[in-house]
């Protein structure tokens, strides 16, 4: 049901853009107003979320330790999985953010009656990393629409991306991988019972949205062969704050752009903020050195605890008869 709601929502969005451009001639709305509004929502919204999280302090050093602690000199510390200094934490965070270290841990292979059982759990890691890597490559490639002349790294990425040398225009792997990985993540939600059970509409919606974006993007490049020159004029207009609508850009472009706008605008209100949140996660970005260095809790306050005097007052006679030293005879 959650999937259906989300699917219908994305279809409606698509039709909205199509209808808006085709019959109502609202190119200016979909090509200029909404993209600006979306990017503003994204920037303000995400900053707001990050500031709000950052305003909540980290009162305790609650590292999740996944390896040997720093201890006696002859015992080898796992400096990355159980970091005790900033260096270790940095490496841990890099592995976490770029390589999804924790997800990779999801290993499952055991000998049972001499038969090695392989876990399917690495698939989530693979799907996840393919999805995110492809997403950022595609995003990066789109910078070509916003820079003149094109930057060198863009050429490099594009060359690498098209290494398969198939077709004309050359097939870029990132788009294909993005679509494939998004489909995989979606299928997971349909097919794995646990995951289906926990999935909310908010989990399906961004997937459908991204699939929609990828499909329209791929269609523009390989099928409808959208006039890239006109598109670039539009995007350069947007980035230089002199927006102008060009005829000759098909409806499919507006659908693509609208879905992207929705994604950006939706971002700060959704689970997609995990992109920024992961950096703040206290179980990962703290060193496990709570016994070595004192961690300060900004809202620390004194509590009323039982004092020794109260304790001795209650038990003095019993302590004396048991020959336990007391303060007051």
């Amino acid at each position: 049901m959650g999937a259906l709601i989300s699917f219908i929502a994305v279809i409606i969005l698509t039709l909205l853009a199509y209808g808006g451009v085709k019959s109502a001639n609202m190119q200016a709305i979909f090509g200029i107003v909404l993209p600006y509004a979306a990017i503003m929502t994204f920037l303000i919204g995400v900053s707001y979320r990050v500031i709000k999280w950052a305003k909540s302090p980290v009162p305790y050093r609650i590292t999740t330790t996944c390896g040997q602690q720093k201890t006696l000199p002859w015992i080898k510390q796992n400096k990355i999985e159980n970091p005790s200094d900033a260096m270790g934490v940095t490496v841990r965070m890099i592995l976490e953010v770029l390589l999804f270290r924790s997800l990779f841990r999801n290993t499952r292979s055991e000998l049972q009656d001499g038969k090695l059982l392989h876990g399917s759990s690495k698939w989530l890691w693979l799907g996840g990393i393919a999805f995110h890597a492809a997403f950022f490559t595609v995003l990066f490639r789109h910078l070509r629409l916003f820079t003149e002349p094109m930057l060198l790294p863009l050429h490099l990425v594009e060359t690498l991306d098209g290494f398969m040398q198939i077709g004309a225009p050359r097939l870029l792997m990132s788009g294909v991988v993005l679509l494939g990985a998004a489909m995989f993540l979606l299928l997971r939600r349909f097919l794995i019972p646990q995951v289906r059970y926990i999935s909310l509409p908010a989990d399906y919606f961004p997937l459908f949205l991204i699939i929609g974006i990828a499909v329209t993007g791929i269609m523009m490049r390989y099928v409808t062969k959208t006039d890239i020159v006109s598109v670039k004029e539009l995007t350069m207009g947007l980035i230089s704050l002199k927006p102008k609508i060009h005829q000759g850009v098909g409806a499919i472009f507006y659908i693509h752009l609208f879905l992207v706008s929705v994604l950006f605008a939706y971002f700060p209100f959704s689970k997609l903020v995990h992109m920024t949140g992961v950096f703040l996660s206290p179980t990962r970005n703290l060193a496990n050195n709570g016994r070595e260095v004192r961690h300060i809790n900004p809202w620390n306050y004194k509590v009323k605890a039982r004092t020794y005097e109260e304790y001795e007052d209650e038990f003095r006679e019993k302590m004396k008869s048991a020959n336990i030293p007391v303060e007051k005879e």
Binding site: W53, P57, L103, G128, K271, S281
Partner: peptide
């Protein structure tokens, strides 16, 4: 407001099922 952990963990779960 007191615990970033709690605040963050309420927001960033993507329900990946790991």
């Amino acid at each position: 407001q007191k615990y970033r952990s709690f605040h963050l963990f309420m927001d960033i779960c993507v329900r990946c099922g790991a």
